[in-house]
């Protein structure tokens, strides 16, 4: 599962990346990332800091030249048609990047000019961007004095002024309070409803739930992708059971080395056990433990969080790497 199954997309996918690799000297920041994003899809890019999310996004925007691999965005090749790509994307960088010494209106006017928004449409689009950012009445405020959440929403407003079909948002919600983050995601879904394709990176696991599909990236490698539901179902490679039993130590000992049991770990006052799907039913587990003198209170299948899945996949990646 080190790479997602290829060939699931169609030729008119909004974003296509094949084997994208970026090396900085001896360090490989992004390692053969292949992914596709269908039109209107919101793709979440999840991974810890330094995993290679920003570099991948910058390669897709044409800001960084890939060492290997190719990509196309909105039907244009990132390498050879970078100007056309730029006409069709909106980008929000990790760091706040509007002009702090200009006002809200002046920033919007500037980006409208740069993207050649037709003069007749500017007023309407500006009104939309301002209301979307919740900045009505603040059009003449210098951007430097706005609070973090408003800045982010204004940056998004600037990035979508020209109605780009594809949006790249690099950690748009980092450092923004939860309420504002919530509103930000509502905006993204509104855009998606209008057919905008979005690739958004975050290191907040709970935000992954808002995406149609997520791609997990760690140390430059894409380690899994799929919808949040799929990943929760399949991400662990088995079924997760939560057991109330005692003594926990003996139970852990008992399960070690049993065929069909993939993982067992103490989780608070319970035991989390991942079993090969189909190999071990709840009845088998109960019998096994009782046979070893463990009192079993309850046992039930549980749905893993995305964080569980991510930790599992990262740990497995480390093991295979250590072995290999």
């Amino acid at each position: 599962m080190s790479a997602p199954p290829p060939g699931t997309g169609s030729a008119d996918d909004a974003v296509i990346a094949e084997g994208l690799t970026k090396r900085f000297g001896a360090f490989t920041a992004v390692d053969r990332v292949t992914l596709r994003i269908a039109r209107g899809e919101v793709m979440g890019f999840i991974g810890p800091n330094g995993a290679g999310k920003s570099t991948t996004i910058r390669m897709l925007c044409g800001l960084v030249e890939p060492s290997e691999g190719r990509a196309s965005v909105a039907g244009f090749d990132v390498g050879s048609q970078s100007q056309a790509v730029r006409e069709h994307i909106g980008y929000m960088s990790q760091k706040f990047s509007l002009y702090g010494d200009l006002t809200v209106r002046e920033n919007l006017r500037f980006f409208a000019g740069i993207y050649r928004v037709p003069a007749g449409e500017f007023a309407g689009r500006m009104r939309y961007a301002v209301s979307m950012a919740g900045l009505e009445g603040q059009e003449n405020t210098r951007v430097a004095t706005l609070a973090g959440g408003w800045k982010q929403r204004l940056a998004l407003g600037c990035a979508i002024l020209h109605h780009p079909p594809v949006l790249f948002l690099d950690e748009p919600t980092s450092g923004v309070e939860p309420e504002a983050r919530r509103r930000f995601w509502d905006l993204i879904h509104d855009l998606a409803a209008n057919g905008v394709t979005t690739l958004v990176s975050t290191h907040y696991m709970e935000e992954a739930e808002y995406c149609n599909r997520i791609a997990l990236i760690d140390r430059g490698k894409l380690i899994a992708s799929g919808s949040p539901g799929e990943l929760r179902q399949r991400g662990l490679g088995g079924v997760l059971y939560e057991l109330e039993c005692s003594p926990l130590g003996a139970a852990l000992e008992a399960l070690r080395g049993v065929p069909g049991i993939l993982e067992a770990a103490i989780f608070g006052d319970r035991l989390h056990v991942v079993a090969d799907s189909g190999a071990a039913g709840t009845a088998d587990l109960t019998g096994l433990l009782r046979g070893r003198g463990v009192a079993v209170g309850s046992i039930r299948p549980a749905l893993p969080t995305l964080e569980d899945v991510f930790v599992h996949l990262v740990a497995r990646g480390l093991e295979t790497r250590a072995v290999g």
Binding site: L63, L98, I114, R116
Partner: peptide
């Protein structure tokens, strides 16, 4: 240094 350049070069400006 202020980070505005990253935004600017992601646009079609030449």
């Amino acid at each position: 240094e202020r980070g505005t350049m990253e935004q600017l070069i992601s646009t079609p400006v030449t």
